[in-house]
């Protein structure tokens, strides 16, 4: 199959960029979106042109490195799917596909479709951990945890830090990410001692980094490849509010 792409090209963080049209031929419906870009890049290299830079690593939907704005939707048209797991059979060859990088002030474009998402690491550094004595893994039944809590914690822990929530949010807010990273710990006994300070510190870090504020529009959940629910944000807010009321 043959596709027309309109790809954002930008040589460096300080350079200005723009959309460039390409035709790619020989695409099978079973190729992933990234494999389709590989085909394009092979041709560009053969033609002596610069290949399109994009992030990727595992290509199996678990690392969180990939992430493209495809026709204005983060990770493309399929729900709960990373860009690397998105297949070309979902695209109509008659329609050009617009490919852009994540757009947010704290995510500067490194080159073409690659952005620097280390701002998300800064949020985690502000409190997304537990200061517990390490050592050998404890027995699984040493600390009883209600099933419902374990399930909610596990749902939140599935976040792969891809940043799609920021890319999709009309406010440019990473609230879904921050909530996932804070509550998966706060819901478990090991995370209790730092629960309130963690919530407050991570939210402060997020705001200081220049992200927008959450207004619960829910765009994030719709594009999240791991389907992190919007309620995760309510759980974080609950902790932030409790921290504020206790005047920590």
């Amino acid at each position: 199959m043959r596709y027309t792409l309109r790809v954002w090209r930008q040589r460096g963080p300080e350079e200005s960029g723009g959309l460039v049209d390409y035709d790619v031929d020989g695409i099978s419906p079973d190729m992933s979106f990234l494999e389709m870009l590989d085909v394009l890049n092979e041709r560009l290299v053969l033609d002596g042109e610069e290949p399109v830079a994009f992030d990727h690593d595992c290509r199996e939907g678990i690392c969180g490195m990939c992430g493209l704005m495809i026709d204005g939707v983060a990770h493309g048209p399929e729900r709960a799917t990373t860009t690397c797991q998105l297949h070309m059979r979902h695209f109509d060859p008659a329609e050009p596909i617009v490919v852009e990088p994540w757009r947010a002030a704290p995510f500067p474009v490194v080159r073409d479709l690659m952005v620097d998402r280390s701002a998300l690491d800064r949020i985690v550094e502000a409190g997304g951990y537990i200061s517990a004595p390490a050592g050998a893994a404890p027995d699984a039944h040493a600390v009883p945890i209600p099933k419902a809590d374990a399930d909610a914690a596990f749902t939140a822990a599935a976040c792969i830090g891809c940043g799609a929530c920021v890319a999709a949010c009309p406010n440019g807010s990473p609230m879904l990410f921050t909530a996932a990273k804070a509550t998966h710990l706060g819901l478990l006994p090991q995370g209790q001692p730092e629960r309130l300070s963690r919530a407050e510190d991570m939210l402060t870090a997020q705001d200081d980094l220049g992200f927008g504020g959450c207004t619960q529009t829910g765009e994030c959940t719709l594009v999240c490849p791991k389907g992190i629910p919007l309620e995760t944000i309510a759980t974080l807010n609950h902790d932030v509010l409790t921290a504020a009321l206790r005047g920590r």
Partner: peptide, 24 residues
Amino acid sequence: RRARKARPVSYAHRPKVQGSYAAR
């Protein structure tokens, strides 16, 4: 204003956001 500052470069192609009409 924070939202505008957080996304200085907007998307070239952006269909209507997918969330609820009320939210938008």
